[in-house]
Amino acid sequence: MDHLLVRHAEENNKLYEKTELISYLFGLYFILYLTPKVKIPFYRTFVVMSSIVTLEQTIDKVLSESQIEFVNKIDSAYNESLNNLESSRSNILQEYSKIINNAQKQSESIKRQIIGASKISARNKQLLLLESAVNNVFVKSKEKLYVLGKEKGYESMLYRTLEEGVSAIQTRDIIIECNKNDKNLITKIINDFIKKNINYKIAVSDGFFDFIGGIRVRSSDGLMSYDGTMDSKLERVKPIIRKNIAQILRGEE
C-alpha cells in the first residue's frame, strides 16, 4: 500500500509545481504549528482530481497524527516544566527550612552552651570566693588558737594526748615533740605521767616545731609516731568546719 501511495504522489507531483506544493505544505505546517488543536481542511478547495483525494487523505492522516503527537509533547513539556518548577520550589522551601532549622538548632545549642557555661562560671566564681573566705576564717582562727588555746583545759588535754600516744605506739622509749612555748608545760606533764606509769623513758625532743599546740609522740627509734598536734586535729575536722563556716557565710544559719 505504501508503495502505491508513493507512486500516486509522484504522478501528482508532475501535475503541479513541486515547489509550490511543498511551500504550501510548509505554510500549512506552520499554521498548524501555530494553531494547535484547530483542524482545518485546508487544501480540499484546490483539489479536484480523484487521485489527489488519496493523497489528501494520507496527508490528512499523517498531519492529524503528528498534530496529536505535538499536542501531547507540548502538554507534557508544559507539565514537566510546571512539575520542575513545583519541585524546585518545594526543594527550595525544604532547603530554606533546613537552613532555618539548622540555624535555629545551632542558635539553640549556642544559647544552651552560653547559658550553661555562664551559669557554671558564675557558680565557680562564687565557690572560689567562698573558699577564700573560709580559708581566711581558718587562718585567723589558727592565730587566735595560738594565743588563746593555752587555758586551763590545755594541760589536761596534753596529758590525755600523751596517754593516747603512748598506748598507740606501744613502746616504752619515747620522745615528745612540741612547740617552743609549751616546753615547760610538757616537762611537767611527762613527770606526772612517769609518776603514774613506771618503766617509761620519755624525753622532750631537742628541736622545736611550729605547731599551734599539742604534741607528737614518737618512738625513740623513729619508726612510729603518733600525731597529737592541734594542727593535725584541726586538719581532720577541717572539712566539717568548712561546711559550718560556709553556711554561716552564706547566711544559712
Binding site: L223, M224, S225, Y226, D227, G228, R236
Partner: peptide, 11 residues
Amino acid sequence: SDSINIEYTKI
C-alpha cells in the same frame, strides 16, 4: 576511732 593517727616509717 577517728582519733587514731599514727605514722610509721618502717617499710
